[in-house]
Amino acid sequence: MMTQVSNFIIPAVIFLVVGFGVLGHVKIYESFLKGASDGLKIVVEIVPTLIGLMMGVGILRASGFFTLLERALAPVAALFGFPAQILSLLTVKLFSSSAATGLVLDVFATYGPDSYPGLITSIVMSCTETVFYTMSVYFLAAKVTKTRYTLTGALLSTAAGTIAGIILAAAIA
């Protein structure tokens, strides 16, 4: 059921957007090409970031660092029945989305994207944000130093999303 809804969403969005464009007399094909070329530029811009971070994660993994960290975290992870790798991933995601991406791909390479750990990763990474990064950038723009209850709220909502994601992953795995 959940999978059927998922499969339906992308075709539905495409149909809706193109249909609306036709009704609005938009030169849909030209608009599409313009957007697509912007999209390519964005990807080209993130190539260096991805190389840098995947290299960093690659070195960390080869060095045995994650093995050490995960050995330390294993008892906690065992309580929830998933590999300790997920815990390092959740921690990294609070700071940097691109650094987390390196670890996501690591989980996919080790367990496969359709395994239980792979599904947890896919869902939880899609429903959480980089709490510390976003807060620092946005509050910097507003020149605010006293952030009051923002961090509590952000962590609470992230925790709720994470728990929901783990339960849902178990349900569809």
Partner: peptide, 12 residues
């Protein structure tokens, strides 16, 4: 991004 450009142009 191509789709979203259409969405922008069409007023969606």
């Amino acid at each position: 991004m191509g789709l979203m450009e259409i969405a922008k142009e069409s007023g969606l």
